[in-house]
Amino acid sequence: MRNYLPPIICGVCGVIMMLHFFLPENTMLYKTMMEWVTNSTIVVGVFGLFIGLASLVHNHGNRIARRSPGWGYSVITLSFTAIVALTGIISQNVGPSVVSKPLDKYNYDNRKNQDHTLITHTLFGYKDETYKTNLVAAATADAPEMKGEEITVRKVPLFMFFYNYVIMPMGATTFSLLAFYMITATYRAMRAKSWEASLLLISSIIILIGQVPIEEIPLIGKWIMGHAQLIVYMSLILYILYAAMKQFFSRNFITCGILSASAALIGVIWYYTPANVDFEAMKSIILNYPNNAAKRGILIGVQLGSLATSIKILSGIEKPYMGGRG
């Protein structure tokens, strides 16, 4: 029974999920089926949450009990799991206070005389000049309508406090670090070491320029934007001619000839390129044609693979939900 029942449940549920795309809507069968399937999966999903929590406590609890290397991190993980869960459960009226007053005398984001309120956390001290750092609280606190110079004090829920001052900055910091790694990677890794690398390099430069209004860069921005074709085509031609020259001195005359012909072909393409094709247009061409062709191929391949795997799972040939056994 242990071996037969799970594949049967899996197969039946899978077939039901597939059928609902083909059954006519507004039929009793369709509605009953949908209701049953959606309710069941939501219930199962909630159980999944408990299993996840139990697994977290089990793994980190074991690490702490065994004093495994880095067990201190496990203590922090478990402590904050409990603290954040509790802050979500306790009353909305528990939390640090915020002080609100009209913002008419300040100029935030050039929006003078707008109906904005100045809100500061009492936790960090109530100072007028700290208002900018506390705008996150301002957005959250949902301050009531201000009347004149009236100052109000209200509570921010503790969960929102954690979210605004711990989770959001940490999430943003982790993601922001990527910018620094990426920008050093552009210097260290994006080099024209081969023909393929050069293609990647040129297309990435076009995308980088096309993604921003480069003409706004002082002194050279307008020139770059006005000479997009010259920059791209000349770079390509010069690079190919350089490669051809190297082949010539290595006495590979056929390769040299092919490369020279390629350079000439690029020159012809340049001649026939409309004058209004700038970096943004080139970016669109790259995204809409080579990118689309590659992505579509990958997507179709992945979906065919998923279909094959799904059929194997539904028919019980593969049983990943049973840990591969049976």
Binding site: D109, Y187, R191, L208, I209, V212, I214
Partner: peptide, 25 residues
Amino acid sequence: KRMWSQLYTHAFAIFLIVLGNIEYF
């Protein structure tokens, strides 16, 4: 407003790509 930051960093990234390639060349 944030596009200004993106503009400057993209320009810097392009400068670094060019610099890295000159060095490599």
